[in-house]
């Protein structure tokens, strides 16, 4: 497509200009575009369905996984009481769900534990994205669709 154009260099870039599209490295080798799309869709749709704010953290959680997850939750921005953080640490094989004060009324700990159970099932077989998507779906099903978000 643009291959013919790139034969002759029209490079006017300096150190201060932003990289062009062809110079950019692959944005994230962690997941493929398809997997990122699935995660994106799951996060956005579950947040929109329930009115809660779901964020997803994937990375190391340190020795105190629960404390670290709650600290991250405190920094996740937005309305914290209505937020839910899903923190996955594949290296430590730990998943933590943190819900805010208002969110925990709609998502009781028992429902979170059930979603975590289904997630760890998928993670155990190596399917990170599938587990996260299913867990988010389960959490948003449990939280339900509040009346004020329904179209009249």
């Amino acid at each position: 497509m643009t291959g013919a154009l790139e034969v002759t260099s029209h490079d006017t870039a300096t150190r201060d200009t932003a990289p062009t599209r062809t110079d950019e490295s692959v944005p994230d080798s962690l997941f493929s575009y398809r997997e990122l799309l699935r995660l994106d869709e799951a996060l956005t749709m579950s947040s929109r369905e329930t009115g809660l704010r779901f964020t997803l953290y994937i990375g190391d959680l340190g020795p105190q996984t629960r404390a670290r997850a709650e600290e991250l939750f405190g920094r996740s921005g937005g309305d914290l009481a209505e937020s839910v953080l899903l923190a996955v640490s594949p290296g430590q094989r730990v998943v933590e769900v943190v819900t805010g004060a208002a969110a925990s009324r709609r998502l009781p700990d028992r429902a979170c534990a059930l979603a975590v159970l289904s997630m760890t099932n998928s993670f155990g077989s190596g399917d990170l994205v599938g587990g996260i998507v299913n867990g988010l779906r389960q959490l948003s099903d449990q939280a339900g669709h509040p009346r004020h978000l329904r179209p009249h």
Partner: peptide, 28 residues
């Protein structure tokens, strides 16, 4: 940004911390 670069996210939310937290944890 989750690492050290996330300082602006830190300062952006000094309001309610959303406590008490609920949730669950699991291992595999």
């Amino acid at each position: 940004t989750a690492g050290h670069g996330g300082a602006h996210a830190l300062t952006a939310a000094p309001q309610a911390t959303g406590r008490p937290h609920g949730g669950a944890r699991g291992t595999w």
